[in-house]
Design a binder for these strands. Sequence first.
DNA 1: CTCCATGCGTAGTAACGCTATATATCGCGA
DNA 2: TCGCGATATATAGCGTTACTACGCATGGAG
Lengths: 117, 117
Amino acid sequence: MRAEALKGHLDGLLLAALEDGPRHGYAVKEALRDTTQGRIDLPTGTVYPALHRLERAGLITGSWSVVGGRRRRTYELTGDGRAALSGERAGWQEFASAVTAALGTRTAPARSWPATS
Amino acid sequence: MRAEALKGHLDGLLLAALEDGPRHGYAVKEALRDTTQGRIDLPTGTVYPALHRLERAGLITGSWSVVGGRRRRTYELTGDGRAALSGERAGWQEFASAVTAALGTRTAPARSWPATS
DNA sequence: CTCCATGCGTAGTAACGCTATATATCGCGA
DNA sequence: TCGCGATATATAGCGTTACTACGCATGGAG
């Protein structure tokens, strides 16, 4: 997976990972890795700053706790966050359909465009 | 359509627009706009530098001509360009499936996360 | 003659996600 | 006991990318 492909879509993924309930950063990273069969495995240097950004934007709220001697910051979706997630999903659908159309998924076997020019 | 959503996927779209035959920059922009029902309408300041980049990368070749008193640079896919397009398509499919999975239009919220870890 | 569509181009900018690095705890194996 | 990996968080610096805002030029329509 090319690295820069994610640009502009990361926020939605993080929000989606928090939709099922509160999670801390590391768990978000793992959830994302699991739901995508390892196709999206974010480096920690990506996920933590992104979560900070989302928190600053008011889309998630975080709270500190200590579990097993390790400090954790657990994040939760806000109302704005849920709304944003909804918007991200809609935006993704539109974007994906546009790119698919433009890319012209002509990988279909039956559809033979004029091979005999 | 959010602007930054395109990042990392533009090259594939441009290559795809050239797959049906040689086109000049302005025509590429129009072709992309048409095949996506106006959802992807690139500013010229995006398409021209991108085409230059693709040419520098050897994925397309350009040639000057004059039509109706206006100079045009017409681009054509190279062999490398066709290969790259194929790769872009495969990459897009993987990326799209991953994002769709992660974004997960979850209609089954039966998953109650363990309050007691 | 003026405006718009056509047609190409560049400079500067902002945003984004990554790499590299740092800190700290815990559990496991040597 | 010591080191290492997994867990857990964090930041600085960087490269890439597409955009905005311009500029130049021609042809046709009004």
